[in-house]
Each structure stands twice: as C-alpha cells, then as structure tokens.
Nucleic acid binder design. Structure first.
Length: 410
RNA sequence: GGAUGGGUUCCCGAGCGGCCAAAGGGAGCGGACUGUAAAUCCGUUGUCACAGACUACGAUGGUUCGAAUCCAUCCCCAUCCA
C-alpha cells in the first residue's frame, strides 16, 4: 500500500496551507488527481525557488498523480505585480516563448513529460484572445472586493497602495485554474506560500461557478531558519542553468548552507528517505559537514547530472580538503588581447576572472589583504602576474577563503 | 481634477547653499576566530590613469564663485478630498 503523498509532503515540510485538508488527502489517497503549478517565464532559466515547486510536483507524480506545468506567457506578458517595484519589464511574446522552452528543458530533468505523464500548457492560449467584457461578466462577478481586501497579502498592500491591475492579476490566475479545470479536469493548484490568496481565489471560483470541488495547497518557500529567502548570492540567484550559475558555484552554495538549514534543504530538495535526512541533520558539531556534502552532491547531481557533480566535488576537495586533483576548478582563460592590454596586472586579472566586480573593487581587496596568488598574499596593488605563470596549467588565485579561479592562457 | 507630503548611493533612511562620494542602520565583501558553519570583533562598500580626477542625490533647464540642497517646468509616488 502506497503512502499517501499528502503525508509525504507534510513529513518533508512542504505543506504550508491547504483549503480542504481532509477532503484533499482523501482524494489523493484514492484516485489520480490532476494538479498544476504556474510559472511565469520572465527569465531564461528557472532558479532554486522554482525547484522546490518542481520537487513537490515530482513527489506528486511519483505517487501517481498528473502534473500540469502552466507557463504564464499570458500573465507574464503584462508582468507580475506582486514584486515590490513597478519595474515590470515588458517582454515580447517571442521572448516569453523562448524562456518557456528553456523552462521545459529544465523541468524535464525532474518530471516525466512522456505520453500520459506531465503536461505543459500555456495560459496565453486562453488569455490572449480574452474579451474584456466577457471576462468581467463571466469571471469578475465571482470576485468580492471585500474578500480580496481581507486577504493578508492585500491587507498590508492597502497601506502602500494597490492598483486595479494588481487585483486583476488575481482574477487572471483564478481564471487559469478554471480553464484547466474545464480543459483537463484539473482540481488542485499548488504553489509557493506567497501565492496563497491567488490560488485560493481560483479554487473558490471553480467551486462557485462550476459547483465542483477544487483545492488549493501551498508549499513552503525556501528560507533560512531566520526567515530570509534562500538562493541569492553575490552573483545573483542560484539558477539551474550552468551558464548563469556555474556547477561549481552551485555545489559550493549548498556545501556552505548554515547548520540549521541543512535538514530542511535535504527534505525539500532531495529524495533521500526522511530517516536519513533526520540522521544527517542531527549530526553534532563538525560532523554536520557530512550532511552538507551529501546535500551539495545529491542536489548537484539532480540538477546537473552525476558527472558534473563529481567534477564540482573533486574541485572542492582539491581546494578545501587538500585533494590533489586540480583539473576541475573554475578556470579563466585569458586571450592574448587581454594579456596585452592589462600587462597581467593583478587588478585587471581579478576583473577578468570575475573575482572582482571592478578594478576599484580589486584594488580594495588587495589592499585589504584578501587576494592570494598561488597561496602567496598579494603584497600590493601594483603586482602583476609573470607571463610564465599563466602557461600550462596556469596559476590559482584566490579571493578570500572560498573563491578560487585558475588563470591561464587561452 | 483639488490639497498636502515626497522622490538621495544595493535596500531603508539622514542631509536642505560650500567642511558631501553624502550620517546611521540593513545587506554584501575582506580580515581575525572557526568546522568551507553560526555568533562576535575589525576593516571596507561609485568609477578610473587612485595623496588626483571624473560621474552621481527623479528629469530637464536656470540662479550662484559654488547646488543633493534655491527657482522653473515636467515625470513619478503616497495621503486626504472628488
């Protein structure tokens, strides 16, 4: 007898809020449920925040339910207002479709999109041709402004100001759910906990308009134990695309999570059995590093494949644990042009390698004693690399304790 | 549309004619300590040809020897009234 996926999600810490817990759990236990999560294709890669959602979908799919990944090419066309700024960067339909195809590629690592499996749909299909008057009459009447304003997410918005546009977004998202219910028999929408009122709005719409059951369920956002969002680094978000976040950086991010966060990350981001997750999370003192190694390796394997994960691990061991195999550490290859232009001055090299964001930054780092060339502290801003150093395997320069880059001739 | 208060560096937020690349806090980065952790302490955080120069305080013009600071116009935001 399979375990109810609802319990699985609960045990792993996914569950946040659910509109009808008993009813939904009952349903999940006895039949194949079609559910969806929406993703706005506003960038050309998913990031780790999305990954938690994908994991929840994967658990559901493994339990025999049918996932629909909804690509919000319609909603993203006008921009999601839930962010703080009104910098709604307007994107072309073509751009959005390109992004959507990138998403699908990344999703298919975790979800099975083969025949009868997960499905991908685009809300532009029904949002673009939508007629405003029809929409207002058919959908608008089901949304009570009073109720919307009572929702937490709008309540605190009232102090800062709230546009009609933002409330309209909720209607569109609700309408998505309704369409999916009609077209695909979708009865459950999942999503991050910040989406609670939007998701609930859709479920309510179906219940009222169609007189049919519909469910809303939100999952935990990936946060640190003190409630801050995870997945940001100095270089930006933790993207799933290796071009936007190198496999090494990805691995290192997880290798370095705070002690208190490892267990949660293992539960949400990997498929390790919970007994093992709890054992690793409870390791005392220095031993907790074992848990971080497992997290980093397992997650990197899931996202980038085992081969890439091994390389990242080998590189990390070479740099931090005295391992001998230096072949996989991050490398920056200098072109002849760069060499000529900079005269291999360290400040320039730091910028080329991405270790410093500007020459001023590089200068500060050197002056602060944070730069090492082949394990020797750089003495002054004036130093330059010797041409011989960048031949062959090159030299390793280090910024601080954790950022390394091998420099060599292209 | 009317009244009022605002738009400052990554974020919050002081400054309200020269001493302002701009207080303070948050966040980041570097150093010490450590376990590639947290906490703590110290330093640092526009760019560059770096004891100097250049670009920055919503936008554009103006007044001044000199403007983030004064004036004009415009754009945007908040609160109240319609």
């Amino acid at each position: 007898m399979e375990r109810n996926v609802y319990d699985v999600l609960e045990e792993r810490g996914f569950l946040k809020q659910c509109s009808h817990p008993e009813e939904l759990k009952d349903l999940l236990g006895k039949e194949k449920v079609t559910f969806y999560i929406g993703f706005d294709p506003t960038a050309d890669s998913l990031h780790i925040g999305h990954y938690v959602q994908l994991m929840s979908m994967a658990h559901m799919q493994r339990a025999g339910h049918k996932p629909i990944a909804l690509l919000g090419n319609g909603t993203a066309f006008i921009g999601d207002p839930s962010g703080k700024t009104d910098m709604r960067s307007l994107m072309s339909k073509e751009q959005l479709m390109h992004n959507a195809s990138c998403f699908q590629k990344q999703m298919s690592r975790l979800l099975d999109f083969s025949e009868g499996g997960a499905q991908m749909v685009y809300n532009g299909d029904w949002l673009y041709p939508l007629n405003f008057l029809d929409f207002m009459r058919d959908i608008g009447v089901y949304f009570s402004v009073n109720r919307m304003l009572a929702a937490d997410c709008y309540k605190n918005r009232l102090e800062r100001g709230l546009t009609f546009f933002e409330m309209g977004y909720m209607l569109m998202q609700g309408y998505d759910f309704l369409e999916l219910n009609r077209r695909h028999g979708c009865v459950l929408q999942m999503g991050g906990d910040d989406q609670w009122s939007n998701i609930l709005g859709g479920a309510d719409l179906i219940r009222r308009k169609e007189q049919k059951p519909a469910f809303a369920l939100t999952t935990a956002l990936l946060t640190t134990s003190d409630g801050k969002k995870m997945g940001k680094t100095e270089k930006g978000a933790i993207w799933l695309d290796a071009e936007k976040c190198s496999v090494y950086d990805f691995y290192q991010y997880w290798r370095n999570v705070a002690d208190q966060d490892v267990e949660n990350c293992l539960a949400l981001l990997t498929f390790l059995p919970m007994d093992e997750v709890r054992r690793l999370g409870a390791l005392p003192g220095e031993e907790i590093n074992e848990a971080k190694r497992v997290l980093a390796y397992t997650l990197t394997t899931q996202v980038h494949g085992e081969e890439e994960a091994k390389k990242a691990q080998t590189a990390a061991e070479a740099l931090f644990a005295g391992g001998a195999d230096l072949s996989n550490i991050p490398t920056c290859e200098l072109t002849q042009e760069q060499i000529d232009a900079s005269g291999l001055r360290l400040t320039d090299v730091l910028v080329f390698s991405g270790l410093a964001s500007s020459k001023s930054d590089a200068r500060r780092l050197i002056e602060g004693g944070g730069v090492f060339v082949a394990d020797e502290k750089a003495a002054s801003v004036a130093v330059a690399l010797e041409p011989a150093q960048i031949e062959g395997d090159g030299v390793i320069i280090r910024k601080g304790k954790k950022s390394y880059c091998r420099i060599r001739r292209a």
